[in-house]
Amino acid sequence: MNSSIKVSWSENNRILDVQYSEFSGGERHVQIGLLPEQPIQTVNIQANIRSSNDLMDYLLLENALFQHNPDIAINLEIPYLPYARQDRVCAVGQAFSMQLMAEMLRLRPKKSVTVWDCHSSVGSQLLDAINIESWQIIGNSPELVDVLQDTNTVLICPDKGAKPRSEAIARAFDLKQIVFCEKKRDPVSGKILETTVLTDDLSGKTAVITDDICDGGMTFIGIAQALRKIGCAHIVLYVTHGIFSKGLSVFEGLIDRIYTTDSFSHNMSQSSIKLTVINFKNINFKK
Rank of each mutant, 00 (worst) to 15 (best):
G139M: 04
E194Y: 02
E27N: 11
S8T: 15
Q149G: 00
T219I: 07
A224R: 02
T210P: 00
K229H: 10
Q99F: 11
Q149D: 00
D200I: 03
P142S: 12
L81S: 08
H241Y: 04
E182W: 01
K274W: 00
L76A: 10
K229F: 00
T260F: 06
D146V: 02
V30A: 05
N12A: 13
G93L: 08
I213L: 12
P70F: 02
H29Q: 14
T199E: 06
D215N: 12
R171A: 07
S4I: 03
E27V: 11
K274F: 00
D71W: 02
G33H: 14
K281A: 13
Q46S: 12
H234Q: 11
S272R: 14
N12E: 08
D212H: 04
N282C: 10
L126Q: 06
N2T: 14
V236D: 00
S112E: 14
L254M: 12
L100Y: 12
V239K: 09
P70G: 02
D128H: 13
L275H: 08
N140G: 08
I138S: 00
R28S: 08
H119N: 04
Q41M: 10
A84T: 10
C181S: 13
S166Q: 01
K274C: 03
A224D: 08
I78C: 09
L193Q: 15
K183C: 06
I132W: 06
Y238P: 01
G222C: 14
N53Q: 11
Q149V: 08
E182G: 03
Q86G: 09
I235S: 01
N152Y: 00
W9Y: 07
S10I: 15
A102G: 12
N12R: 10
L16H: 08
D159F: 11
W9P: 01
W9H: 08
Q38N: 13
G231K: 07
L34F: 13
V147D: 00
P158M: 05
L61R: 12
L155I: 03
I78S: 05
K286D: 03
P36S: 08
A168P: 04
